[in-house]
Amino acid sequence: MEERDAILKKKREADRVIITPDELEQLDPVIEKYYGNPGYLIPALKEAQEIFGYLPQEVQYKLAVGLNIPASHVYGVVTFYSFFTIQPRGRHVIRLCLGTACYVKGAKEILEIVQREVGIDVGQTSDDGRFTLEAVRCLGACGLAPVFLVGENTHGNVIPGQTVKILDGYQ
């Protein structure tokens, strides 16, 4: 439990001001659009994430005040949906399908290659900010198994050996 506490504390430290007040002003049009309207939390969060790429503490607090929602509830929603992220993401998000079909067709090898070659685990972002790796349950494209997305692009029927070559296309 102490270990867990230590991790929590460390995480909180890392969350500290990364977004400056000036940058935070970009959020004003979003708040203006949904001012005092708690029902629009999810579209507001989505638009905020489009602006900043992630949803750090300051952004969530500003939205909470603007939309008149308690900050704890905003945090609850952000942590509920895997689409939202509190940590900055890489320029390219790899969403690797680990569903049954992909798994038996070699998704595990692809995962190992990414882990080895890019040096990140599931949920992590590479130090150079290039990639974030996410594992998903099913992309609904089992006919293309094994499949992964990089950003908006789908890569299907991947032969594990090609993984590095595909990723090289994203700088």
């Binding site: 503490q57 704890s72 509830h73 945090y75 942590t79 509920f80 895997s82």
Partner: peptide, 17 residues
Amino acid sequence: ELSFVNRGMECEVSTDF
């Protein structure tokens, strides 16, 4: 002050952050 955070098996009650 409190809210459910995270999802599924990781769900817990917490304040923001």
